[in-house]
Design a protein around this nucleic acid. Structure first.
Length: 271
DNA sequence: ATGGTCGGCAACCGA
């Protein structure tokens, strides 16, 4: 069977629910992982997702900031929420799909919203950057994110780091800009390496090619400037690497009316 | 070199 997964930082799920519906009707992923829902769980637009065919929902929201959600057409069996850096921030939710749906092994899916880290790339002067680095250190130390048993694993989300040279529009001009500083790139790649994760985008698109999933709201013309960054990621365990049959970035969504500054990133797996 | 724009929620904070 084929399962399709999308990750999208929606920057308010309530404000942009019509854009979500537009994407879901066109792309029909089986599973949608959202970040920055900015929505308490009791205000999440459940009915709209149900009408669209997404009846299974795992929520970790909070008022005003952050917030993650997984909505699915396929039932999942268990859900989990992890906290990092002793904060109650809603930055993680996971679900496990069982073999009942036709998979040859269970599949654990982690959805993350890593802290953005503020503006000043020095942890001694900027507590938000210190928090981001500590968050990445905790991800590295988290054994649940070191997939090594018989299950399949995926880790998706807005990781707020563009780790490779061509994950940003200008490596040279971004070296001191939070999201592409050497220390956070190294830490994110450490999380990836210790878990044995495969970066789906970079397994399919050469490192020499520019790839972006985010374009700033502050550009007068985002498409003309094209000063993007690849902040949104889909990682899979080695057991799934050869089963990825499609990967796409829906860049057109950045040009929709009142868009998120992030676009949907989608991978299909043959399970 | 600097400031540029969003969303939440009601003055700024976070991005």
């Amino acid at each position: 069977m084929r399962l399709t997964f999308t990750t999208w930082n929606i920057n308010s799920v309530r404000l942009r629910i019509d854009l979500v519906a537009r994407f879901l009707k066109a792309a029909r992923p089986d599973v949608l992982c959202l970040q920055e829902t900015k929505c308490p769980d009791d205000a999440f637009p459940l009915k709209r997702f149900k009408r669209l065919g997404y009846e299974h929902v795992a929520l970790n929201g909070q008022k005003g900031y952050h917030g993650v959600a997984i909505v699915s057409r396929v039932p999942f069996e268990t859900t989990g929420i992890r906290t990092f850096c002793d904060k109650v921030d809603s930055r993680h939710v996971s679900v496990e799909f069982g073999t009942g749906a036709g998979l040859d092994a269970p599949l654990v899916l982690h959805n993350f919203y890593v802290p953005a880290g503020g503006d000043v790339p020095d942890p001694a002067f900027n507590p938000k950057f210190a928090h981001k680095l500590a968050f990445l250190d905790e991800m590295k130390a988290c054994t649940a994110l070191h997939p090594q048993n018989g299950a399949h694993h995926m880790l998706v989300g807005d990781l707020n780091v563009a780790p490779h040279e061509h994950d940003v529009w200008s490596h040279r001009q971004m070296l001191k800009v939070v999201s592409h500083t050497p220390i956070e790139c190294e830490k994110l790649l450490d999380v990836q390496a210790i878990g044995g994760w495969r970066d789906v985008a970079r397994e399919r698109i050469p490192l020499s090619e520019k790839v972006y999933t985010w374009w700033s709201y502050r550009a007068a013309d985002w498409a003309a400037a094209n000063r993007g960054r690849r902040l949104d990621h889909i990682w899979v365990s080695p057991s799934l690497s050869a089963r990825v049959s499609d990967f796409r970035i829906t860049q057109a969504a950045r040009g929709w009316e009142r868009p998120s500054d992030h676009v949907p990133v989608t991978a299909s797996l043959e399970l």
